[in-house]
Amino acid sequence: MTGKDFYEEIVIAGFGGQGIMLAGKLLAQTAMRAGKEVTYMPSYGAEVRGGTANCMVVIADREIACPVVSKPDSLIVMNKASLNKFGPRLKNGGLLIMNSSLIDSKPELDDSIEVVAVPADELAVELGSHKSANMVAIGAYLQKREYLTPEDAAQALPETIARRYHKMLGVNIEALRKGGEFVRSCCGV
């Protein structure tokens, strides 16, 4: 999945407090460490807690033209409102990672779109940290896309999150791995 033509546009969306921005930053940081071109663009609104949150990440092996993603190659959605909003924008042949813990219905999307339903909240709770659902989703995404691995993200994590949260590093790295394992076991990757 790499080479001169590699150009991946990703939207990550959920509600405020789900760690959407952090997930995006981690993806960007991981890709930057791997020597890729990268842009990260958060939505910024009046909301601080609650409400909707999304961010756009572009990762490529050539110069990135536009940091604003209108038609993502991959979409990671953590709640139903985000699926409704961004689902229709997914490119045909694209990838949807959806948090099935909070999304009960099957999305009505083009058949060419690959859907991976990850019970991110449940898997995170199993690890004892319900806040790590975002990491589970990123782990699943990277395992699926394969241009980077959940381990690469684990390496980038300490420089992505503020020092005062470093006590949470361990469980978040576990969550990244757990997302990857889930994809390996359920999707036959």
């Binding site: 842009t39 663009m41 940091p67």
Partner: peptide, 10 residues
């Protein structure tokens, strides 16, 4: 603009 101010790039 808002995008340039908020976005991250290396």
């Amino acid at each position: 603009d808002g995008i340039l101010g908020q976005m991250m790039e290396p």
